[in-house]
Design a protein around this nucleic acid. Structure first.
Lengths: 190, 190
DNA sequence: ATATCGGCTTGACAAAAATCAAGAATTTAA
DNA sequence: TTAAATTCTTGATTTTTGTCAAGCCGATAT
């Protein structure tokens, strides 16, 4: 079983091996070079991709600064959900932070999933609800925690990320400046 | 057409009047008195309710403080989504801030919606994705805005809330203390 | 009418976080 | 391998926000 298939099984609990293969066969491998744009704000996002390896940064430029909304990693999916589903202009820009291997399904093919996997609509819903819950947690962290608390909470659950992507982006997605982030680290390692 | 039916139409674009009626007939009216709990953290949330009138506060107690995650208003739905969908213990406590009129569907009946409204699973998905997008925006506001900016942004879009519920709860859901909130208002009105 | 309670405001102060500027360290590219 | 560019760190300072304590205001109940 490929890593992709294993991840699908983890995310969706699809048990039948034939179903797994039918599903993964709808995706196509793609390679992105470090720096490549997976998506640009304002364009339509017509692909949903599983990350086989590498890191992607989801961000947005404001007048004054660039805000990193999330860094997507191996074993997860990446897309601009509202653009992919509603076919609206993308809200985010998504860029490869490293060379990246992904498996991609285009929107045009996406609707075929349910023909090879009848329970897909239900699995998809559960998956989206799970993502929703994750965002709820993240909002809660901003309502209830200081920058330092958010740092430690994220660090404990994502240690591996800290030596693989520029720290300034992690700082931004945690809602603090690189300087504040750096000072928290200084305390952490002393 | 009832307000409930009009709202369903707005949220889901169900056009057929018969479908609307079939759907709303699955919901039952309920009344909550100010202070009543719609849901308590840790219990299972087996209802999804449409708010006909009144305000509900979604919150959580931490060791040190109480965090208001959201205030739900007329024309919207209220539930603990992860508890309702996954039948897990509820993450939030939900309390009536005023007397409240709601229309409620129990989880046991919820699955019948798709028998009277075949396109429900798709509409439901789109609705959840829309909610997801709203949370993304909220996270972005915490990554990119100061307390004052969040205040004005929320004020512009929710003026009517400010003279109907205690301001301390709005302060909390915007991620600031009541004192900071009060000082921003002082500036605003001077 | 007045006592009580919840909610809001205010001031003084402390803590947290941002900003600005300079310089190290690391990575990347020539 | 060295130069350039990017990223990270540090210090000084300012701004923002939180904390604590007191008082005020308005609604409600006695």
């Amino acid at each position: 079983m490929t890593e992709f298939e294993i991840s699908l099984k983890q995310h969706f609990g699809i048990v039948d091996t034939e179903e797994l293969k039918a599903m993964t066969s709808l995706f196509e491998p793609e390679l992105l070079k470090k720096g490549d744009l997976f998506l640009e704000t304002g364009k339509k996002c017509d692909r949903l991709s599983f990350i086989q390896s590498g890191f992607l940064r989801i961000f947005l430029e404001t007048e004054t600064k660039e805000i990193t909304q999330w860094i997507s990693t191996k074993g997860y999916f990446v897309t601009d959900l509202s653009s992919f589903i509603f076919e609206q202009p993308a809200r985010w820009t998504i860029q490869a932070l490293t060379d990246v291997e992904i498996y991609t399904i285009r929107k045009s093919k996406y609707d075929k999933i349910k023909t090879v996997l009848p329970k897909w609509p239900e699995l998809e819903k559960l998956f989206i609800v799970h993502c929703f819950t994750t965002l709820e947690d993240r909002i809660f962290s901003h309502l209830s925690m200081t920058a330092e608390e958010r740092y430690y909470f994220f660090f404990e659950n994502n240690k591996e990320l800290f030596n693989q992507v520029p720290l300034q982006y992690i700082a931004s997605m945690l809602g603090m400046t690189p300087e504040t982030f750096s000072r928290i680290r200084k305390k952490q390692f002393s």
